[in-house]
């Protein structure tokens, strides 16, 4: 076991201790197929939680998206995202005439990796997710054979609200729904609304 594997093991163990990291596979079984998981985004911990919920064989082939400017700034951040999570780096600022910001994602999908994306683009703490950005539509169009799995991450904003650094132990769940792929000739706006509704529909009951 090398250093990165050990670090991954420790991070997953801590995530389990704090959040329970329960995965409910309602729509699909946890199978090692190529998938794009898309989820609501409420906290920095979202990715770690999804990752800790996945079985070990899925973990190695599932990669997060990381903002290049933030996650390569210090050697530690760079090391964790590169070696432990094998993150796909993207530029947040879209430059005029620059390369397509989705280019790294497309490259990763062409390699056969699975991705976890947060189509809202930013964290929201209003409960329900904001409108989805169009990136997911382009990926769905370009890779029709890759399953698009909606996920609802529950409770994680209570573990570490914005501005706090120490997480509080509160149980979280990730609910995985049935694949939500692009239909033939489906317009972009319609698909984005449908994808968002697929995520919201997975929200467990019991509290507001």
């Amino acid at each position: 076991m090398n250093k990165a594997d050990a670090m991954g093991f420790v991070l997953a163990a801590v995530a389990r201790l704090i959040t329970g990291a329960q995965g409910h596979w309602k729509g699909v079984p946890p199978k090692a197929e190529q998938r794009i998981y898309f989820a609501n985004h409420q906290s920095h911990l979202d990715w770690v939680l999804v990752w800790a919920t996945l079985p070990a064989d899925l973990r190695v082939q599932t990669r997060p998206i990381a903002a290049a400017d933030y996650w390569t700034k210090t050697p530690l951040r760079h090391w964790i995202t590169r070696e432990v999570f094998r993150a796909v780096y993207v530029d947040r600022e879209r430059k005029e005439g620059g390369p397509d910001p989705l280019e790294p994602l497309i490259a990763a999908l062409e390699q056969g990796d699975s991705l976890v994306i947060f189509p809202e683009g930013t964290r929201s703490n209003k409960g329900l997710p904001q409108e989805f950005k169009s990136g997911i539509f382009r990926l769905a169009k370009q890779f029709p054979h890759v399953q698009l799995i909606p996920c609802w991450i529950d409770n994680v904003q209570r573990v570490m609200p914005k501005g706090e650094v120490v997480p509080v132990p509160i149980l979280c769940t990730v609910t995985f729904g049935a694949p939500c792929n692009l239909r033939e000739d489906e317009p972009k706006a319609e698909f984005l609304v449908r994808a968002r509704e697929a995520v919201v529909a997975l929200k467990p009951g019991g509290h507001a």
Binding site: K26, L171, C172, T173, H207
Partner: peptide, 9 residues
């Protein structure tokens, strides 16, 4: 009742 309410273990 796992699955219905988060946290009921």
């Amino acid at each position: 009742n796992t699955g219905q309410v988060t946290g009921a273990v």
